[in-house]
């Protein structure tokens, strides 16, 4: 999932464009043109499936709603004006808040998991990795429905707690805000773990020993050596968990009932029930711009550090 870091990519590019002597240059030229041919499908794919839909979505967001389905070619700023209504603004705010909470919890659980997994011996590394990957082989929807069975009123958890006389009445956890946060963390945790793991695994552990040897305690070594060197993994983990948690509408749908509405839910509702394509497009554009801005801000704070080949 994580490619090589940016520095490696730069040196690879450097050695490709280097080369002295005319024969070498000719060879390189030929090599470049064949590389270009090989890259063609990739470019074509990107244009057809990424660039074009994005432009179309942007275009759509300025059109007017059609009576039953689709849109009419009539320019309007109304879709964007509507987003400024408190109902939608608050939804953006709630979504951001939820994304922040789930990302922070993911950092505090995912970082130690990924970090310690990287320090295990090969056998245990494989076991921990397997435990992490097995849930991936099942659909996310089925897994979330599994949690419903556990958490619903008089579900497995309630029966267990009441059977142990720890509680007297059902906890009514399902369809609450914490439940949605839990679902979001659960769904995105593996991304954080894997991102941190890939960074921590590459780290040279003798650096930690060197730091201890030079007089730093375990905690100081962590903050001065380990954390800075695994920061690229942590940063990509943050981006990998923050962005999806703004849009994973089915988590809020299944675990939040209709009480918790996130921006992803509104987009989905406008598309399906509301049949308002232009408004859904406008919401999507705003969400996209918002996340791009946050990433840009984040990159600036993070400085020149590379985001583990992600962005």
């Amino acid at each position: 999932m994580m490619g090589s870091d940016g520095r490696n990519r730069n040196t690879a590019g450097g050695s490709l464009s280097a080369g002295s002597g005319s024969g070498r240059a000719k060879k390189n030229k030929r090599k470049r043109s064949s590389v270009w041919i090989l890259m063609m499908p990739l470019y074509a794919f990107t244009i057809v499936f990424v660039l074009f839909p994005l432009l179309y979505m942007g275009f759509l967001s300025f059109m007017s709603r059609a009576e039953v389905w689709g849109f009419v070619n009539e320019f309007t700023l109304g879709n964007y004006k509507r987003i400024l209504e408190p109902l939608y603004l608050n939804t953006f705010k709630d979504s951001l808040k939820l994304a922040f909470i789930s990302t922070i919890v993911n950092i505090f659980i995912g970082y130690p998991y990924g970090y310690f997994m990287a320090r295990l011996d090969e056998k245990w590394k494989r076991i921990m990795m397997l435990l992490l990957m097995i849930p991936f082989w099942t659909s996310g929807l089925i897994r979330l429905n599994g949690w419903i069975i556990v958490f619903r009123s008089n579900g497995i958890l309630d029966k267990l707690l009441m059977g142990l006389h720890l509680t007297d009445a059902p906890l009514k956890l399902l369809y609450t805000y914490p439940m949605v946060v839990f679902g979001m963390i659960y769904a995105l945790m593996p991304f954080m773990i894997l991102a941190v793991y890939s960074s921590a695994e590459k780290m040279d552990w003798t650096l930690v020993e060197a730091s201890r040897d030079l007089g730093a305690g375990a905690a100081e070594t962590f903050f001065r050596v380990t954390l800075p060197l695994t920061m690229p993994g942590l940063l990509s983990g943050v981006i990998l968990t923050f962005i999806p948690s703004m849009g994973l509408f089915f988590v809020a749908d299944l675990l939040g009932g209709n009480k918790i509405v996130l921006i992803g839910n509104i987009i989905q509702q406008q598309l399906t029930k509301g049949r308002n394509l232009p408004f859904a497009a406008a919401l999507s554009v705003v969400l996209m711009v918002l996340t791009s801005l946050l990433i840009a801000l984040y990159r600036r704070i993070a400085g020149t550090r590379q985001l583990e080949g992600l962005i």
């Binding site: 040279d204 003798t206 650096l207 020993e209 060197a210 040897d213 060197l229």
Partner: peptide, 12 residues
């Protein structure tokens, strides 16, 4: 203090 075989200099 130790001089490690791979030097173990802090890359950051």
């Amino acid at each position: 203090n130790t001089i490690f075989q791979n030097y173990a200099l802090f890359p950051h």
